[in-house]
Computed example of a mutant assay.
Amino acid sequence: MANLSHRNRVGIESDRVTDVSSTDFPGYVPGEDAAWDLEKFKQTFKIKISHLTNMTSTFDLIGVDASIANAFRRILISEIPTLAIEYVYIQNNTSIIQDEVLAHRLGLIPLKANPDHMRWFKKGDPNVEPTDYDTVVLNLSAKCTANAAAPAGATDPKVLYHNAHIYSSAITFEPQGRQPEWFPEGVLPVNPDILIAKLRPGQEIDLTMHCILGIGQDHAKFSPVATASYRLLPTIDIVGAPITGELATKFKKCFPKGVVEINAQGEAYVKDARKDTVSREVLRHPEFEGRVKLGRERNHFIFSIESTGAMAPDELFIKSVQILKKKCQILRDVELRKLKA
């Protein structure tokens, strides 16, 4: 089987990008078998995790087409179910924030909760009552009062008053039915320091919130990621004679820190191409014309996930794979039924 590695690179020119289209399909080159093969895919496909925390993750996705990488990105943003505040029942709100604005602010607070035990709530059906299987209840009750022990001359509202600032930490979880079993740590905001409202003596907020399952396709508040993105792995090739002396120093300055270094012989070399932002600054200088070739690997994606905190980023990616797999199974079943018809 022919090696396609020499054609697996996107060219970066000073005024254009070349070789964008994929070439790994049958019939592109006469006499070359580029048909997709499962065993070959197993050998070339790789995932390399370079950074992982509870909130962010960066990993290399190697050996897939851009359409697959983009499918994961879109699923992460808009198709993974999460819990979010959907209904706000306001018993009392005498703050300066209007009811609808307050409800909107509450809805955008990300909640840390595993949604796997929950079922979909049938919105719009007046005959459906909330249950512990489809609705999580949260409460918020706070009243601002003057601090009689405040020192004379104090001007800080947090010193002068009790509950001058209402944060997301004031939200409490009211478990229903089997929810203590499903959510042993409760359902609470990811960050306890999100400012909801500022109150002054006599002002009060008292409300109940119902959280249901949703996806980012319906509203951004249901999206489990703050961002999910990818970029192709940059490539930098020094061609011809080595770049030395003052040119080496100038060459190094054309790239972000850590991309190019100078060795003991005074020659510039590429230390870490993945740090490059592909600014093409080096192509602006005539002295480097024909001495450097920029590109990107077409099937090597540097994937980044920044979670809202509802779920860990590695868990989110696994869920995106499961959703894509389910979509493929549905499509396969539909096509099989067409063939049998």
Rank of each mutant, 00 (worst) to 15 (best):
A2E: 15
N3Y: 14
L4W: 14
S21R: 15
S22F: 14
G31F: 15
L38E: 12
K40A: 04
F41H: 14
Q43H: 08
K48P: 02
F59E: 00
L61S: 01
G63H: 04
G63Q: 03
D65A: 09
D65P: 11
A71E: 07
V88T: 02
I96S: 14
R105G: 01
K112C: 07
A113W: 03
D116R: 05
N127P: 11
V128Q: 12
V137W: 15
L138E: 02
A149L: 10
A150I: 13
G153A: 07
G153R: 11
A154H: 12
H165E: 12
S168P: 05
S168D: 02
S169K: 14
A170F: 11
Q176I: 06
G177R: 08
Q179C: 04
W182L: 05
V187W: 12
I196G: 00
C211A: 11
G216R: 01
G216H: 02
H219A: 09
P224H: 01
T227A: 09
S229A: 14
Y230W: 12
E246T: 09
A248E: 04
K250S: 10
K253E: 15
C254W: 12
E261M: 10
N263I: 05
A264I: 10
Y269G: 03
D272Q: 10
S279C: 13
R291D: 05
K293C: 02
L294I: 00
E297G: 03
R298A: 02
H300K: 06
F301Y: 05
M311C: 10
K326L: 07
D333P: 03
D333S: 04
V334A: 08
V334D: 06
